[in-house]
Simulated assay, not measured.
Amino acid sequence: MEKYLKKGMSYAADTLCLEDGVPLNLLMPTLGGKQLWRDECVFVGWRIQSNLYSGHFRLLDPDDFRQAWGSYDVCLFELEKVIREKGIKAPVDPKEGGIHLVMMVHGITRSGDSFSKMEPVFVEQGMEVAAITYPSTRAVIQEHADQLDQILNRRPDVTKVSFVTHSMGGLIVRQLLAQKNNWLSHTKLGRVVMIAPPNQGSMIAEYVKQRTLYQLIYGKSGQELIPDAVQNLPIPLCEVGIIAGGRSDGKGYNPLLSGDDDGVVTVEEAKLLGCDEFLVLPGLHSSLCSQSDVITAALNYIQSGELTN
């Protein structure tokens, strides 16, 4: 980093060439591959990500255009420069009097895009939202929790953190909150909303855990969704609200599952001992985070501790 600063070299996205064989840094949209990238640092929609296999980093703007790439220090340098030049500031939640970060954690095989309809609703209320992307099928739940821990450690300006999770994301936050976290020394822990979490494990995962196709698609994390594995995860010592999907008819959407369900996770599997609020809303597992009634309930719980008005 230091030699580039001495030469006055810039890693701005419109740079066409650099000395010393440094790669070109062209402004360009991402090409997908969300299972190959993990968020390392987030700030008001900007993200520094690392590639799971190459180990290099990239800086993405809120529209998912790559603004810089190289080492973490290079991307951080560019992010700090953008923050200064554009005057970007994290929003102050009027109800908290500080920065209230709502971390949204998606489920397996998904990405932060799962919360594309939910995120702006929370932002309108003065919260900063970080819809995290992590390589859900390429690592174990402990590693995913460590990633969230590192992101939060890099945000000492945040005064309060709350979580909204979907599916396996709830298990990751359970693991995160069970360990010692340095960020809790300066950041208040808010509430957790879990949407369709397999808190008791997934019988579907149990049925197919030995299938080669399932193992190839769902990877290491897929093996941690079975009931025996989930039982080892501690229960969070904070306020938790759960939104389960179902038809409230005792049958659910999937005839292969027992009782009410959202097609993937049953209502019983979503329950968690000691959870403060539990609500069943009609909807399928993959689309629950996009439903207006689910979004409203999640926002209500983060703000007031109640899933309904």
Score class of each variant (00 low, 15 high):
Val140Tyr: 03
Asp20Met: 06
Asp146Ala: 13
Ile83Ala: 10
Val280Tyr: 11
Ser71Asp: 14
Leu299His: 08
Glu268Gly: 09
Tyr218Met: 14
Phe57Ile: 11
His106Asp: 10
Gln49Val: 14
Leu101Thr: 03
Asp276Tyr: 00
Gln49Ser: 12
Ile243Pro: 00
Gly98Ser: 12
Lys160Tyr: 02
Gln35Phe: 04
Gly259Phe: 02
Arg174Val: 03
Asp20His: 11
Lys81Ser: 09
Gly126Lys: 05
Val129Glu: 02
Lys117Pro: 05
Leu36Ile: 11
Arg211Gly: 08
Glu78Lys: 09
Gly245Tyr: 01
Gln303Asp: 12
Ile141Arg: 04
Tyr207Ile: 15
Met28Ala: 15
Gly107Thr: 01
Glu78Ala: 07
Leu27Tyr: 09
Lys86Trp: 02
Ala12Ile: 07
Arg155Ile: 10
Gly245Phe: 01
Ile243Val: 10
Thr159Arg: 15
Ser54Asn: 07
Thr137His: 07
Glu206Arg: 12
Asp39Val: 04
Tyr72Lys: 04
Pro197Trp: 00
Ser162Tyr: 02
Leu101Asn: 12
Gly107Ile: 02
Ala297Leu: 01
Ala12Leu: 11
Leu152His: 07
Glu78Gly: 03
Leu216Trp: 09
Ser221Leu: 12
Val173Thr: 12
Phe278Met: 00
Val192Ile: 09
Thr137Val: 15
Gly305Ser: 07
Ser71His: 06
Lys160Gln: 12
